[in-house]
């Protein structure tokens, strides 16, 4: 009725507002501190890190640690830098995200617009699958991958990430399509559209937001995964998270903190960029991931 009122939250005095801002800024610093530490120290020489103040900005900026981390440092047995592992991650992430998103969309479509007897049970089982501790599937999955000749391959990891991503992608699309007017589907059917025509021509064109949310969610999860990467990859299919951990926790040689920090930023960069570019969708994914049945 009235204009959207701007000032109906609880009013507070000037002193309290100053306190609120102080606290907010304090926490901004708290959250940014580790990132600052990583960035600042990835640009320092090893001597400067050892001799000095971790919180201080670099005195002489050097990009050598970045070069080292990207293409020179020794990970495992070979001195290749993180580059090949970064590429492994990309080759793994793209198909896994695409496949699980596509299947999730189809599943959501069937579960909402073509519900049949038992489809709710199927959805319940798929939803519950989102929450299992993955430790429980490690042993049999390793065996199955071996039987399929996919052990230690990127294809194997794609398969793993696709099937374990299905629960969430299905959940996202199901909840989105549940709010999609069924009348539109009925109208298209009366116009003679088949099952797939309805999907491609009616549902998909209006699924933009949820596709973005799902892709971001899956991308973040698959890129950041460590457990599956550590369990099912071999030296030529290792994803970047595992390579970074190997780099940082290798017990041999001098600890090159600056290279570790540069490597950590490299590993974080793709998801960070996605987050900064489309944070709104990222947050929506997180919220949907917090389960709305």
């Amino acid at each position: 009725m009235s204009h959207p009122s701007q000032d109906n939250a609880i009013e507070s005095g000037r002193l309290i507002r100053a306190l609120i801002y102080t606290l907010l800024i304090f926490f901004v610093i708290y959250y940014l501190l580790p990132l600052w530490v990583m960035v600042a120290n990835s640009l320092k020489t090893l001597d400067e890190i050892r001799g000095g103040d971790m919180l201080a900005p670099p005195k002489d900026i050097t990009f050598e640690p970045w070069r080292q981390a990207w293409s020179k440092t020794q990970i495992g047995v070979e001195a290749t830098g993180l580059k090949p592992y970064f590429l492994n991650s990309i080759i793994m992430v793209v198909p896994a995200v695409f496949l699980s998103t596509f299947l999730g969309a189809l599943n959501g479509y069937v579960l909402t617009k073509w519900a049949f007897r038992g489809s709710n049970l199927i959805f319940g089982l798929m939803l519950l699958a989102c929450f299992i501790p993955f430790q429980i599937v490690l042993i049999p999955m390793a065996r199955i991958l071996g039987m399929l000749n996919l052990a230690g391959t990127i294809s194997g990891l794609i398969l793993v990430h696709t099937v374990y991503g299905l629960g969430f992608t299905t959940l996202f699309f199901r909840n989105y399509y549940a709010a999609f007017p069924t009348e539109l589907v009925r109208a298209a059917q009366i116009d003679g559209a088949s099952f797939f025509q309805v999907f491609w021509r009616i549902l998909i064109p209006s699924s933009g937001p949820i596709i973005v949310v799902t892709i971001i969610w899956q991308f973040t999860n698959v890129w950041n995964d460590f457990l599956f990467g550590a369990s099912f990859s071999s030296y030529d299919s290792t994803p970047i998270t595992v390579a970074l951990n190997n780099l940082v926790n290798s017990s041999t040689g001098v600890k090159e903190y600056n290279v570790h920090f540069a490597g950590a930023i490299l590993a974080a960069l793709p998801t960070l960029i996605v987050y900064i570019v489309s944070g709104r969708y990222f947050v929506r994914g997180l919220m949907a991931g917090a389960v709305k049945g």
């Binding site: 926490f27 940014l32 990132l35 973040t220 890129w223 950041n224 996605v274 987050y275 990222f282 947050v283």
Partner: peptide, 12 residues
């Protein structure tokens, strides 16, 4: 700022 850590891998 408060939310960005959620986008980062636990390893990082």
């Amino acid at each position: 700022v408060y939310l960005y850590p959620m986008a980062i891998s636990f390893i990082v």
